[in-house]
Write a protein that binds this DNA or RNA. Sequence first.
DNA 1: ATAGCGATTGACT
DNA 2: GTCAATCGCTATA
Length: 198
Amino acid sequence: MLVSRADGVLTGGRIVETEAYLGQGDPGSHAATRGITKRNAVMYGPPGCAYVYFTYGNHHMLNLVTEEEGTAGAVLVRAIEPQLGTDEMVRRRGARPMHELANGPGKVAQALGLDLRDNGSVLGVGRVAVFDAPPPSEPVAVSGRIGLTAGHERTLRFYLEGDEHVSRGRTGPRRTARLTDLKDEARAGDARRWKDDA
DNA sequence: ATAGCGATTGACT
DNA sequence: GTCAATCGCTATA
């Protein structure tokens, strides 16, 4: 559950689509180039913070920092299922079908009223908060990330299979799995990474 | 100081 | 399916 209290109004919903962005070695990441810059600094900061950036001259993107301080890593929230403050979300986004209020990363930030002021804010302390929720009943689909220049693709996009609130997009190759299995895979990957580092 | 570009969207063919 | 809008960040001079 993702919740915003921008403008003193609570808005939010269930996260239904995400993409992972790593640090060095992930050419699609803002942290791809070695070193901290003014923009990507928050990605290197402590986990549990919001990394918000501005792109294409119009759109804000909300990421959740995931890795320990000193290691770049964040999850881009690409879509949510509106559940809280939907009337305010309609006011911010314009009259649209419910499933088009936040079915894209730029739309998520707009619907939640977020902007660069939220960059670096601590989840639950600033205007953005994330709460645990029951695991989804739908299978989780895994595909390549959207919108990256060729050669930057990695299968790091995760979304709820068949959910109407997921962004439209060229999916490409895709597989589905249970959430518990994906978590097992992630843990195995972490173990492999630690072993390699050692 | 500044050219080039982008983790997109919305309108249009 | 194509395409323009739009501006902060990054890299280069």
